[in-house]
Structure formats: structure tokens, C-alpha cells
Simulated scan of single mutants.
Amino acid sequence: MYDSGYATCEDIDVAMRLGCGYRQGPFETIDALGLETVRDGLRALYAEYREPFLAPAPLLEQLVAAGVRSFRDRP
């Protein structure tokens, strides 16, 4: 949704908090952990299980490579 431009990080976080009862939205969680940490964790999971849904999203890979620290700081 975010990468396709249908929703902002804030929209998605609010929807997940209010609609699903999460304490934090996914982008808030990623920002708290750090993009690089999340990317590295997904890489490790993918390497172990080889499930395509565990591979880091291309946008996440691009942002980490560009030194971006938060989705909200995306150029």
C-alpha cells in the first residue's frame, strides 16, 4: 500500500492500531527497530526458510543502501 502510493505510513499505522488493536503500527515498529536491523532480520529469516514473503522488500533494501534511517525520511 505504501510503496504503491495508496496510503501514507501514518495512514497504515493508524489503521493497524485502530482496526487491529496493535499497540504500534508497522512503520512505527520498523522506525523503533531501525531499517537496517529489520532488513538484516528479514534476510536471516529468508536465508533460513527460503519463503518469498520473508525476503526484504526492494524499497527497504533501497532505503538502507541510501542511508535513510526512517520511512518518514524517504527522499
Rank of each mutant, 00 (worst) to 15 (best):
E36S: 13
A47R: 12
L42S: 01
G41V: 07
G5P: 08
E61K: 07
R39P: 03
E61W: 03
E51V: 09
D40V: 12
Y22D: 07
F53M: 08
Y2T: 01
Q24A: 13
L35V: 09
L63D: 05
S70M: 01
R69D: 07
R50H: 15
G25H: 05
A15Q: 02
P52H: 06
A57H: 15
R72M: 00
E28P: 03
Y46E: 02
V64D: 00
A32F: 06
E51G: 03
G5L: 05
I12T: 08
L33Q: 11
A66S: 14
G41A: 10
L60D: 12
F53W: 10
S4L: 11
C20N: 05
A55E: 14
G41S: 09
V64E: 00
R50G: 01
Y46P: 00
I12P: 04
P56Y: 15
Y49S: 06
P56F: 15
R39L: 14
D40N: 14
V14E: 10
Y22P: 00
Y6F: 14
R74S: 10
M16G: 07
R39T: 06
L59K: 06
E28Q: 15
Q62H: 15
T8E: 01
F71T: 00
D73H: 13
D11R: 06
S4M: 06
P58I: 01
T37D: 06
L42T: 02
L35N: 12
L35E: 12
I30Q: 13
A7D: 03
L18C: 03
P52Y: 04
G19M: 05
R74T: 12
R69H: 09
E61I: 14
E48S: 10
T37S: 09
F27Q: 08
R17A: 10
A47P: 03
R69S: 11
P56Q: 14
G25F: 07
P75R: 10
C20E: 11
R39N: 09
L59M: 12
A32G: 05
D3F: 04
I12F: 06
Y49W: 09
E36L: 04
P58V: 02
E10Y: 05
E28G: 05
Q62N: 14
R43W: 04
Y46H: 13
Y46D: 02
A44H: 10
E51Q: 14
G19I: 07
E48G: 02
L45S: 12
R43G: 02
T37H: 13
F71R: 00
A57S: 13
V68D: 00
R17T: 08
A55F: 04
R74I: 13
A57V: 05
Y6H: 09
A65N: 13
